[in-house]
Structures are given as structure tokens and as C-alpha cells.
Nucleic acid binder design. Sequence first.
DNA 1: AATACGGGGGC
DNA 2: GCCCCAGTATT
Length: 356
Amino acid sequence: MKPDFTRRLLQWNKNSNNRAMPWKGEKDPYKIWLSEIILQQTRVEQGWSYYEKFIAAFPTVMHLAKANDEKVFKMWEGLGYYSRCKNLIASARKIASDYKGKFPDTYDEIKALPGIGPYTAAAVSSFAFNAPHAVVDGNVQRVLARYFGIATPIDTTAGKKEFQTLAQSLLQLDEPGTYNQAIMDFGAVICKPQNPLCSDCVQNKACEAFKQQTVTQLPVKQKAIIRRERWFYYFIIEYKGKWYIKQRTAKDIWENLFEFVLFESPKAADDITPRLPFLKKLVNGTPFQIESISRIYRQQLTHQTIHGRFIKIRVQEALPTLSNYSLIDKKQLVNYAFPRVITTFLGEPASPAQLF
DNA sequence: AATACGGGGGC
DNA sequence: GCCCCAGTATT
């Protein structure tokens, strides 16, 4: 005997769900997995073109496993959360080596791959193999919190456990994949974060939040986000038509992406005069010429605001202080993945040299 | 249990 | 500006 919620959901799915996406109904676990990694904390509209680009470039997991890191990162550029890309590559290679290119078909094996947690393991195993695991993503938490009137914060251990258990109890065991797809579509199309379509909703008579008029207050989140500001001064050092770049390795934003010579300042500065000692030490006596100084580029991340400024310098001799950097021809820069603040700067016409 | 990790779109 | 998005890994 199915719960009322499940019955109504499947009824809505059959009669009224028109949502179409490139990966919907897909049975190839590789393609499902790729779509799920791309969509982690990412809106469908944002991930859509990336998915199509990746499938075209890497039709199978073996294609992806054999690709070089830089190419894959370049294709991921702009999508954010770059550890997903690193883990994507690592998983593909693990499937190639440990599974001979055949995607693992159990929840536990899938979850053991890097970058795959409970949500993604449930999604891939249920969509591809009809494994009986309920997905719990932001959509599901919102739908269930409202329908059952649950005020337990979703970002706590207790809340996660509660929603996971509830979701699993509502799962339709005949076709877990269909059910999982339906509840996420329902959350995205009807039970939306803002302006949900309650008056047209087939569940509204039984929906606790609708009855109690608490729809806009659910789900509850506990943690407030703390923001910090950072000031990045990028020195673009040109030598014989080549620029110095380096891959970020620190446990920080943009790990594995490339950047120019960075001086991070603890506070804002209107002009770059305070950066001169850094520059002097960098060139260490080598003659240099300041070619241009950009405006300040602002990039808003979830937890940080980046203020970026770019100073172009030309030198006539290579700089020994930059031995751990690569000298890349300007035309080759398109092969390297950079953070948004840098690609935005590079995409704009050069600003006229301004002195300070 | 808390924190870090991007970027974009809607309001 | 603030919130949220087909979450996961690390500390």
C-alpha cells in the first residue's frame, strides 16, 4: 500500500510532468553519473550546456579516463566547485582500471567513487539499475518539509537523518528511478523555493504547510553564512610575448585552476602604490615597465567577495624569482582553466595605461 | 558538528 | 543584497 503522497506524486508525474532534460530517461550509468556530478549544487539551466559539451567530447567513461587533466578542467571552467572536476577525472580512471571501463552497478560501489555521496549514489543506482534508494537533495527536503510540516533544520545531522528516513519510507519500490525523478521534478516545477504553485498543486489538500500557511517558512535552515572580503592583485608579467602562470595548489578557492602572479592584500587599497615593494622584490633588479593597470573586478562567491585588479608588467629578461611558474604564449592561454574574475578581465578590451 | 567550496539567476 | 541550486569532502 503506497502512501498518499507517493500515489499523488506518481499521478502528477504521469499526467502533468512535462519537464524535459537531456539526461532524463537516460539508462547509461556513465551519462547519468556525469549529469549528477555537474548538477551538484548547480541549477539545471546552468549545467545543461556543460553536460552536452562533455558527452560530445567524452562519449564513454573510457574517453574521459584517457583525457588529460588540463583539457577536462578547461571544459569545466566557469562551472565552479572545481573539486568536482578533479574527482570526476579520478572516478573515470578508477572505473577504467578497477572495473575495466564498466560502470559499477551497486549503490555501495558507486558511493565509494570520489565525489559521490549519498545523494549521487542513490540517483545513479536508481536511475540506471533500479536500486531501491531514495534521493534526498534540496528539492526533496523542501517538498517533504512542506508536505509534512517539518521544521527540523535541514542542515543539521538530525535533520538530514530525519529527511533521509522519511524519503526512503515514501519510495516506490517498483520503479525507484521513476519515483526519484518525479519528486525532484515536482520540487523544481511545482514546489519551488519561491512562488510555489500551491493553488494548482495536486498535493495541497494534504500539505501541512499549505494548510497552516507556513509554505514560505519551510524548509528551515540553521546556519547563517559568513562572508569575507579578499583583495587580489594579479601581476601579469610578460616576457617575449609569454605570460607567467601557475596552478593553484592551496586548499583554497579555485584549487587546480591557473592564475598569474598573485599578491593578496589583507585590505583594500585604492591605488597600487602599496604593492610596489612586492613588485620590486619580484623583479629583483630586473628592469621592468608597467604597461597597464586595470579597474577593480568584483566577483561574488557564496562565502567570499573577491576584488581583483590586474597590473601588466613587461620585462626584457626572464625572472629567476618565478622559476616555479610556466611561461605560456598568450595565444595558448585559452588551453588553461582560469577563475571567472580572470576570464572576465581577459575578455575585456585592454584598459589604457594609467599611472598612479 | 562545523566549515569550505563557485557561479549564476530570481527577486 | 540575499537566497538557492539534482552535495561532498575535510577538519
